[in-house]
Design a protein around this nucleic acid. Structure first.
Lengths: 149, 149
DNA sequence: AGTATTCCGACTATAATAATGAGGATTAAG
DNA sequence: CTTAATCCTCATTATTATAGTCGGAATACT
């Protein structure tokens, strides 16, 4: 297998999987963190932090109290994987334009990376949670057989 | 501007730029590290380390002694950007197959990442140093105008 | 011999990533 | 009202990756 150029951070991976799980359950009732964490095998405390961020980002709503938990803030076909990753991975500083004059050599890299990122964007921004779940459900056999191996 | 999903490490960026510079100079005589570092504005010590690695990878040859330096180990049209990045970014451990049974949820991520990486590979493995230099030379005005801003 | 150069191992510093821990606030249900 | 389940907030820690730096040894040309 060839080297994976791009690896998703655990955080973003967990986030996508947690939201995926929410869609998969498809209940209108909130799902609590523990269940989500168990279902997707994610460290629970870490997932709490992630869900909190996702709430800030408007991806989920939280319901507090005894039978509380999390639920999607919008329909599954309006949330793309790209949106999730972008939101979680962006850091405040990178927004500020760098004052330093870039070296000409950096442009050859920049041009390349722009191409690459357009290409990634083409995949991630066009894949919704709903599509992921649909594909998962229709191909479940192959997913599971992969799992067992 | 949208968030860049994929950012090249400084190391890989420097490596590509150093090799690019070697091709650009196009001499058959070795170029020493200092000149390369100055030409591409790369920390010289760091570049030494990188060139050493690139030598292990068969990308460059080193010539020691007074008029020594580095030169390409193969023609510029036989070195792709993908090869360079792959070689530098791979770590030994990731070769070993993980013994842990992956969670089914990881497959939805894996499938996505496989798509993404195929796509990146399509760009990086089809771009040779020679092509980069050719494109740079024909479009030099625009590069420079970008530089000046 | 002298000098420019590569080569090499160790070292540091910083930041990002990936969690973990303790306790408080909120709410539903008994 | 009490209690248990749940989210929420702040802090701390551990690990790894990144981006270098330092000093000197080995080598080869002149």
């Amino acid at each position: 297998m060839s080297y994976p150029f791009f690896q998703l951070s655990k955080k973003s991976g967990y986030a996508v999987r947690a939201l995926f799980e929410l869609v998969l359950k498809g209940t209108s009732a909130p799902v609590n963190v523990r269940r989500l964490a168990k279902a997707q095998d994610i460290p629970i405390r870490f997932l709490e932090i992630i869900l909190n961020e996702l709430k800030q980002g408007g991806f989920v709503l939280s319901v507090r109290g005894k039978s509380g938990g999390y639920l999607l803030a919008k329909p599954a076909d309006e949330i793309t994987v790209g949106q999730i990753i972008r939101f979680l991975e962006k850091n405040p500083e990178s927004d500020a334009p760098s004052l330093e004059q870039p070296h000409p050599g950096e442009f050859i890299i920049k041009r390349l990376m722009d191409n690459v990122n357009d290409c990634i964007s083409g995949i991630c921004d066009n894949l919704t949670l709903e599509e992921m779940v649909k594909e998962y459900q229709t191909n479940q056999e192959s997913f599971v057989s992969n799992y067992v191996i």
